[in-house]
Measured scan of single mutants.
Amino acid sequence: TTFEIRVGDLRITLHNADEEEIRWAEEALRRGIHADEILRTLEERRR
Rank of each mutant, 00 (worst) to 15 (best):
Thr2Glu: 15
Thr2Gly: 15
Thr2His: 15
Phe3Gln: 15
Phe3Met: 15
Glu4Phe: 01
Ile5Thr: 04
Ile5Val: 13
Ile5Lys: 02
Ile5Trp: 00
Ile5Cys: 14
Ile5Asn: 01
Ile5Pro: 15
Arg6Gln: 15
Arg6Val: 15
Arg6Met: 15
Val7Ile: 11
Val7Asp: 05
Val7Ser: 03
Val7Phe: 12
Gly8Ser: 01
Gly8Lys: 02
Asp9Lys: 03
Asp9Ala: 05
Asp9Gln: 04
Asp9Arg: 02
Asp9His: 06
Leu10Val: 14
Leu10Pro: 00
Leu10Gln: 14
Leu10Met: 14
Leu10Gly: 03
Arg11Leu: 14
Arg11Ala: 14
Arg11Asp: 04
Arg11Thr: 15
Ile12Ala: 01
Ile12Val: 14
Ile12Asn: 01
Ile12Thr: 01
Thr13Tyr: 02
Leu14Gly: 01
His15Lys: 04
His15Arg: 04
Asn16Tyr: 05
Asn16Ile: 04
Ala17Met: 04
Asp18Glu: 09
Asp18Lys: 09
Asp18Gly: 09
Glu19Leu: 11
Glu20Asn: 11
Glu20Tyr: 13
Glu20Trp: 14
Glu21Leu: 08
Glu21Val: 06
Glu21Asp: 13
Glu21Phe: 13
Ile22Met: 06
Ile22Thr: 03
Ile22His: 03
Ile22Lys: 05
Ile22Glu: 03
Arg23Cys: 06
Arg23Ala: 13
Arg23Tyr: 07
Arg23Thr: 09
Arg23Trp: 08
Trp24Lys: 02
Ala25Gly: 03
Ala25Lys: 00
Glu26Leu: 11
Glu26Ile: 13
Glu26Trp: 07
Glu27Met: 06
Glu27Asp: 13
Glu27Arg: 08
Ala28His: 08
Ala28Tyr: 05
Ala28Thr: 05
Leu29Ile: 07
Leu29Val: 09
Arg30His: 08
Arg30Gly: 07
Arg30Met: 10
Arg30Gln: 07
Arg31Val: 10
Arg31Met: 13
Arg31Gln: 13
Arg31Phe: 09
Gly32Glu: 05
Gly32Leu: 06
Ile33Gly: 05
Ile33Ser: 07
Ile33Met: 12
Ala35Gly: 13
Ala35Val: 11
Asp36Ser: 09
Asp36Val: 12
Asp36Pro: 08
Glu37Gln: 08
Glu37His: 08
Ile38Leu: 09
Ile38Pro: 00
Ile38Arg: 00
Ile38Cys: 00
Leu39Lys: 05
Leu39Phe: 14
Arg40Gly: 08
Thr41Met: 11
Thr41Ala: 10
Thr41Val: 12
Thr41Gln: 13
Leu42Lys: 01
Leu42Arg: 02
Leu42Ser: 02
Leu42Ile: 14
Glu43Val: 07
Glu44Ala: 09
Arg45Trp: 10
Arg46Ile: 07
Arg46Trp: 05
Arg46His: 11
Arg47Glu: 11
Arg47Gly: 11
Arg47Cys: 13
